[in-house]
Design a binder for these strands. Structure first.
Lengths: 348, 348
DNA sequence: TTGCAAATTTGGAACGTTCCAATTATCAAG
DNA sequence: CTTGATAATTGGAACGTTCCAAATTTGCAA
């Protein structure tokens, strides 16, 4: 015994029924008599049967493999890890399993990984694309009819569903908050002008500046690398103009930290002498000094919604490409010197 | 066209050869003529062929599915995310793909996930077990002959390979460091007493206390949840005794952060008035204030080694259960007020 | 009993690959 | 122009499931 794996035929023999009946039991069909069902189940347990999904898949025309692929650009980054966990939650409870891979921001690796997943017959893909992903990278998988949901960043020309945070609204709220604290000259710092995310956020800034009737001045908009170093550079340039800003909303939290560095280097204490708002609410935002006021985007929730959308598309055969914007919320901490202001302070 | 998926037979027809030949090409066999090989490859590209690993697997006796399963107790925790990334690196470059799932510390979910992976025919499993995992949970998969490597925590009675960090040695070094700074009453804070990891670390603490001839007092050992909240609670209890400690080594970094919170709440400044050492070296340890002195365990390296071990066992058919202890290193930062001490400071 | 519908069960024929044994093409030497 | 050997190719027969159409059993009224 124990020579080969136990198959549905072994079960059938041992239970004195046909393989078809066993298959029916496996699928929980209502066509099978209660007595035989229990009998078959007992035998399966006894022989230590394990279902061979590969074989099943082969027969069923592919689409229902119960595997969904998740490809993430940087799992090391808490943001994306949370995203993956969110996806896993809903995917798992829908009886699917998750194929998760990390691309480390390499489009090449991303291509390989996606190809490999395709070979394994995934029935859907959630992708948080590596920087530099082109629409052509997604072409083959989209063409094959496998539902794809792109999360967080979107891929310019690709005809796929996507879910991203509400960049416009987030920055709008940030500016509004700063205005409510009395600021009139507010800078927008960091980020590359040629990215979609930058433009959405900038648009939010412009809209808020207009809506709040505070000073409008293109010198207050300083682009720079979306990194800590970029932040330091940006604040330097922003403070070199004659009519200086007193507050800034930053492209993301990394930039915000860089801005803090840059301010301190000039003897200006962030949070007390200058107000700063970030974007993303990365883990360090909470523990940094001063704790960073920022726009929180709930990556896990985003993951869950991405998964739900994907599952919907899978079961629907194939729906239209759909775009979800995930709402964000302002988390007030200490970097605006705003301790104690009457604006929904962070709970706990 | 585009009716069903493109199969090896379609390729064969289009290229004017037999399916067997196409299969040979697929496997890179040297038996096939160079001209036909290029021809076949060209046709494959043209028709957009994608390999069906499921079908291949079915024929090949199972063991070489090119999938390895990775099950992690908490992907949200940077430590385990890094571990998974480490695994992914070597697994991917060996041409395997990774099935990654998160159990959120639930043994039930863990069981389900492992069962599901088995159905998908994984050829090996790396498991960072959920709290409360029993040897019996691993019984079936081990019995089926699938190589399993348990990482980080080990499962008591299970006959599997494992890789864990050198807990004893790490805490020993931490205590030694504190002693070298002049501390005589050093607490050991946090962690659940009924876990193997706790006991290994505690053992390191005891050994160091004995070796350094500093005060030995069981009141200095305070167990608590291995979390930030647990740390705050533990330091509270540790400071309620008459002869108070002046330093603490903590079960892990989360506890250490909680200890900082607890100290500040009492007006004691961590790093200046009280020395703290953590364990794990999570990402925030570097950026926290004060930056945390801790025991670094290189989770990514551990993941890589775990994967290497697993791959070795997979190709070896099945080797003996092997145990690796992964060495650790003390990273001195600011939480011991030790800036400038002559103990190998963190580089860069 | 008989008949008939509903409830169960059942043999194949797929699914897309790999492997084996066997066939055919190629070519150098006799 | 055989012969043999070597190189290259090729038809099935698996692999473990699902699905279909058909067969069998059952229940029950006539």
């Amino acid at each position: 015994m124990t020579k080969g794996r136990v198959t549905v035929i072994d079960i059938a023999k041992a239970a004195g029924v046909s393989k078809s009946t066993v298959s029916l039991v496996l699928q929980g069909s209502s066509l099978v008599n209660e007595a035989t069902r229990t009998k078959v189940n007992a035998v399966m347990r006894e022989l230590g049967y394990v279902y061979n999904r590969g074989a099943a898949n082969l027969r069923q025309s592919g689409s229902k493999s119960k595997i969904i692929g998740v490809v993430v650009n940087d799992l090391t980054n808490g943001f994306f890890a949370e995203l993956a966990v969110g996806v896993d939650m809903v995917v798992q409870s829908a009886g699917f399993v998750q194929f998760l891979s990390n691309t480390s921001e390499s489009p090449d690796r991303q291509r390989e990984v996606i190809a490999s997943m395709r070979e394994h017959g995934i029935s859907g893909l959630i992708l948080s694309p590596a920087r530099g992903t082109e629409a052509s990278d997604l072409k083959p998988i989209v063409a094959s009819g496998i539902p794809v949901v792109v999360a967080v960043r979107n891929v310019p020309g690709a005809k796929v569903s996507s879910i991203a945070s509400d960049n416009r609204e987030g920055v709008f709220a940030a500016v509004q908050h700063l205005v409510s604290l009395g600021h009139r000259r507010i800078a927008f710092l960091g980020g590359f002008r040629d990215t979609a995310v930058f433009n959405e956020r900038l648009e939010g800034y412009r809209a808020a500046v207009a809506a709040c009737r505070v000073e409008q001045d293109d010198d207050l908009i300083v682009d720079a690398a979306p990194s800590r170093a970029g932040g330091a550079e940006a604040i330097g340039r922003a403070l070199s103009i004659s009519n200086k800003p007193t507050a800034a909303v930053c492209f993301n939290d990394a930039v915000a930290f860089g801005v803090c560095d840059g301010l301190r280097a000039k003897g200006i204490e962030p949070g007390r002498d200058f107000s700063i708002v970030g974007f993303d609410d990365v883990i360090e935002a909470r523990t940094a000094v001063p704790a960073l006021t920022t726009i929180s985007v709930d990556p896990q929730g985003m993951g869950r919604r991405a998964a739900q959308l994907l599952l919907k598309q899978i079961s629907a055969g194939k729906a239209e490409a759909e775009t979800i914007v995930s709402s964000v919320r302002l988390v007030v901490r200490d970097s605006c010197g705003a301790s104690g202001v009457p604006v929904g302070r962070e709970q706990a």
